[in-house]
Design a protein around this nucleic acid. Structure first.
Lengths: 203, 203, 203, 203
DNA sequence: CATGAATGAGAATTCATTCAT
DNA sequence: AATGAATGAATTCTCATTCAT
């Protein structure tokens, strides 16, 4: 019990925090709530993470450690740009489905002023956008056209995420069932939308 | 000064709240902070809005009262679908530029669990998505294809907003200057992207 | 409207206060609540009564102005002591039935530390107990036996009031219906109890 | 000091609350005042009792846990009804002398509208009145005569308590000294009053 | 008389954190 | 490693009262 639980305690705090932060926002969650949800003693949070902010830092780092490789792997010179792109979107959608809370949490907290995580945020987002930029080049866009670059990257991210952000509301409105088949179709739709769109931008 | 200031107090609280909430999130802002920023006595917040949540409710209502008409006006049968669409996007981008904080605030807080605003949220978003849905019909999409509908609406919203969401980071990365000319170009880009994309979806 | 309403406003504040104070205690009621219940503007309370305490003062004075005459009238030399006593109890029970809230309020707030009403309280209760003392003499008790005097007076008051104090609970327990007949019987019971009891004390 | 003080903190809050509530009423006392009087940190009140109401709940429960056994013990079949009764009154008077503040507090707050304690109140008073009812039977009263039952119980309680309720005022009026001898006499007086009175009710 | 706005003090509660054990 | 108690600052909200109109 001792050894295993100890290791679990740390992770249980992280899991509980991801779930709670994503639903209520970082500032909207108290450490007591986290400790209860995780089933650990209150003081363990300071012990393991040196405070509430420490949890957020670790979550953000872990997120990018999982998320960035997707973009790196997607840059496969042996494939056509279009195949690359479809592969990428499929991977991203799969990742978001598997880590919805984590993704929404990081996305939502990104613009917020929690000073201690600002450095992590801007560094990691920088890496991410550069990755996306280099991918875009492969799709025939001129990387020197910064204005277009500035549009495509964020648009792609947020468009993909939008499904999950508004999920509780959307499914009530459109009566779609978010099952395997739906997401297959979703990936096709978003890919076609973007590939046709980017083709249009290339004139 | 006396007369005008009294009438302004209510609005000053709203303005300060929009600014602070959008930067730090609803839960991350205290009523003290709002009262200071607005230059009103702390108790006025309860007096006018019946608590912090009351401010958020009013902000959300006001937002949709401003935002929805854009979509209603855009549905002009005398124009071509493409002209409609470009007009709509131009209006939205203009609206976001004029009300960036308000827009980001509402967008960011929408998914969060502030129970007392849940009803307002779902009702207003319902109205919005229906509007977007009826617009999409005009662009030749089959409204019965709910899966596509569920993709286009949220994608359009979040894609357009993405510019402003990630603005602080983006401009550091892409070194673009968010001036009049940039947004002219931005509107063109996003319109072309979507019109070409939707054309692709129509086969 | 003007004249009558103005006079009404003052009384409406008093009525609302009696009702609220008796249910929640003086400290448990806010002036806003009183103003709402009375249908008057908040500032009228300061205007008419110079603050919340002023209401309580006036209520206490009014109470004793109504309550003391009962004891004065009861001291009728032309009747037998027993007839006097039964008449008194009948009057008291009637008074309490007609002014239950007022009676409970004064009774409950008597022991509490609201400094500004302390003087009124002790003066008025002094008058009351002296009245009761002089009545007791007529029933053949030696007024010099202070210990007995100290027992009879308060016992009589609180015994009579007890019906109304515990009314909500009691009627659930004993399933008695507090109608005209019940109170007729009640007066008989309490009179017999006391008259027999006092007879026993006289040996 | 360390160990003992920690354990005592909870009880010190209760003791301070009883003293303050009984003097100023529940609504008239602030948690700051309680914390100061008890010598504990303000937040300990929420920590131990989950708010001011929680203190009152616990006090009421504790009161009945002490008070009810007196009535249960008094029902001794081996004694004459009169001996039972005198024993009971002696025990009650002793209990009130030892716990005057607690008794007055519970008695005064019982009729007041503190919603969260309503359930406790009615349940506990129900138990109490049933006990008193079964005692009264032993004194030869017909328990089916609910009207008489409804009179005797509350009258006995409030008559006994009246001494302590009006103590500050009474002793000024009657110049009696509340010492051991006085209460001996008081017990005799109240017992004779009631026994003779109840005898009179039996015809 | 009456009103709506405003005030500043104080209310209860919750916070993240620390500490002795 | 883990706990339960404790802390003091900060939280939101309510209070009785005042004032200009």
């Amino acid at each position: 019990m001792a050894e295993k639980d100890r290791k679990d305690a740390r992770q249980r705090i992280l899991d509980a925090s991801v779930s709670l932060f994503s639903r209520k926002g970082f500032a909207g969650v108290g450490v007591r709530e986290i400790a209860n949800e995780a089933g650990v003693n209150l003081a363990m949070i300071s012990y393991y993470f040196n405070g509430k902010t420490g949890i957020l830092k670790e979550i953000i780092e872990q997120f990018f450690n999982l998320y960035l490789p997707i973009f790196i792997d997607a840059d496969d010179p042996g494939k056509t740009p279009e195949a690359c792109f479809r592969h990428l979107i499929r991977k991203i959608v799969h990742f978001i489905r598997e880590n919805t809370d984590l993704f929404l949490l990081v996305y939502n907290e990104i613009p917020l002023d929690v000073p201690e995580v600002a450095e992590i945020k801007s560094r990691r987002i920088g890496e991410l956008l550069e990755r996306i930029g280099s991918l875009m080049m492969r799709f025939g866009l001129d990387p020197a056209d910064r204005a277009i670059m500035a549009v495509i990257g964020p648009t792609l991210i947020s468009a993909t995420l939008a499904q999950f952000r508004l999920r509780p509301v959307m499914h009530k409105i459109f009566q779609v069932k978010p099952d395997e088949k739906y997401y297959e179709h979703y990936v096709d739709t978003i890919c076609t939308l973007f590939l046709s769109g980017v083709a249009g931008l290339r004139k």
